[in-house]
């Protein structure tokens, strides 16, 4: 049995219907355990105090903001190469989720930045890249919404996703380069993974797992919705033709 069987919309809905409750339950459990553990059962950081605990929202959402785009890129490639409709619709379904993750990462970053850096926003390369990523998400979503024909929209957005990915990477390097000219990058950016001690690390892993599962569950759910909406359009069009 091949993975491509789930490219059939009906099979996809049937299969995801079975796993969705488990996925959602597991995601919820991970998030509850991870967040409670992180918020209440870890010591305050000696330098940052309790503000450090926003890391349990910030890092996982940032992780999914980038991986959400990567998932869209893979799904777009699958659509271009193999023309599986579920793949195109999954990419469409993932975009708003990824965009929200980006907003969460930016918002939590700003809230964290205020006490730590004394400012909500600094044109730090990492922050700036996320802002640009958000703009890419917006453009992608807007293009899907603007094109009426589903297959045309899938083709156009897939190519936009491909080209956008290249330019997103270019922007990342450009921003890194651009920022050096202004100030030393190190003073404002703290490398999270290196600084984090084990006590913080384990609940963070649980939270990251929770966010990954949450993302997958949301994408499955939204893909189902997209498939059903598409089926509705096909039925309506058929009725009009008959």
């Amino acid at each position: 049995m091949s993975l491509w069987e789930y490219a059939n919309p009906v099979k996809f809905i049937r299969a995801t219907d079975r796993v969705l409750p488990w996925l959602a339950g597991l995601a919820g459990a991970c998030l509850v355990v991870g967040l409670i553990w992180g918020f209440f059962f870890t010591p305050d950081d000696f330098r940052q105090g309790s503000t450090v605990k926003i890391i349990y929202l910030h890092v996982p959402s940032a992780l999914m903001a980038i991986n959400g785009w990567l998932m869209m890129l893979v799904a777009s490639l699958v659509w271009i190469v193999r023309r599986h409709h579920v793949s195109a619709l999954a990419a469409r379904a993932a975009a708003p989720v990824g965009a929200v993750m980006t907003v969460i990462a930016l918002a939590t970053g700003a809230i964290w930045g205020q006490p730590m850096w004394g400012t909500y926003w600094a044109w730090d390369p990492r922050l700036t890249s996320f802002l640009i990523l958000f703009l890419f998400y917006l453009g992608y979503i807007a293009l899907w919404a603007a094109v009426e024909n589903d297959d045309t929209a899938a083709d156009l957005t897939s190519i936009l996703c491909l080209v956008g990915s290249v330019f997103a990477v270019l922007s990342r390097y450009a921003v890194n380069f651009w920022n050096q000219g202004l100030h030393q990058g190190a003073s404002l950016s703290l490398d999270k993974e290196e600084n984090v001690a084990d006590v913080f690390y384990l609940p963070l892993l649980v939270c990251m797992g929770g966010f990954i599962l949450l993302f997958i569950a949301l994408v499955f759910l939204r893909t189902q919705t997209e498939i059903r909406a598409r089926r509705m359009r096909v039925l309506l069009a058929r009725e009009r033709m008959a």
Binding site: I132, L135, F136, G139, G164, L170, S171, A174, V175
Partner: peptide, 17 residues
């Protein structure tokens, strides 16, 4: 308007350099 929304993010690296 959509054209601007799509193209402007792609202009970022060119503008920066």
């Amino acid at each position: 308007l959509l054209l601007s929304l799509l193209v402007l993010p792609l202009y970022v690296p060119t503008l920066i350099f």
